[in-house]
Amino acid sequence: MQKLLAFALLLYATAPLADEGVGERLAACVACHGKSGEGVRGAEYYPHLAGKPAGYLFEQLKGFRDGRRVNPQMAWLVQFADDTWLREIADYYAALPPRAHAADTGADALTPERRERAERLVREGDPVRNVPACSACHGANLAGLEPGIPATVGLPADYIVAQFGHWRDGVRHAIEPDCMREVARAIAPEDIRAIATWLSQQSNPEGTRPAPAGSFTPPTSCGALHTETTR
């Protein structure tokens, strides 16, 4: 028993704290991603980071640094950061509570037909075009799946549309096989805005975290499922 206690104490002592001053070092991130990675209210474009899988965030940070994702401001900030530091940044945001509220994009309300279409695509996909349901990989609650699939619930609509564009144009790359590239190329362009608007209007009031790795099985073996974990 004593041994167990000592072991527990040792674990506690060596476990990294949630924030060893990481937050104060990340002042640059706050301007766009909010004080706690929750995004910035108002005219939103930038995605929230809080509570997303650490593996996903780490992969994106490396992507901006190494050219697999393109955003000059992000590349500017992370271009001289090594993996160890990027991992720590990813862990920091992953540990924060997921954002509960929907994006406040002021997006035009969807017509009932478009809303119905968007919901069907999210839940069932588009069998005609061979597009899987969003929920098949991002989870029934769209809160994501460890280690590499992010939450899509409540993301700003313009951000989602831009990502589809980046995948279609080949400027955003995920680990191969890059399923989202195939989805973005297969999906009907007019459906992208509908899905994006619908997703931006969803909230996550319980602050549901990404599902643990392996807790459900997506239809295809995407590279994101094999994302390097940060620990």
């Binding site: 001053g21 990481v22 104060e24 070092r25 990340l26 002042a27 640059a28 991130c29 706050v30 301007a31 766009c32 401001q73 900030l77 950061a81 090594d82 160890t84 530091w85 720590e88």
Partner: peptide, 8 residues
């Protein structure tokens, strides 16, 4: 190893 940053 854990640098500070300045916001845009």
């Amino acid at each position: 190893p854990r640098p500070h940053s300045m916001p845009p």
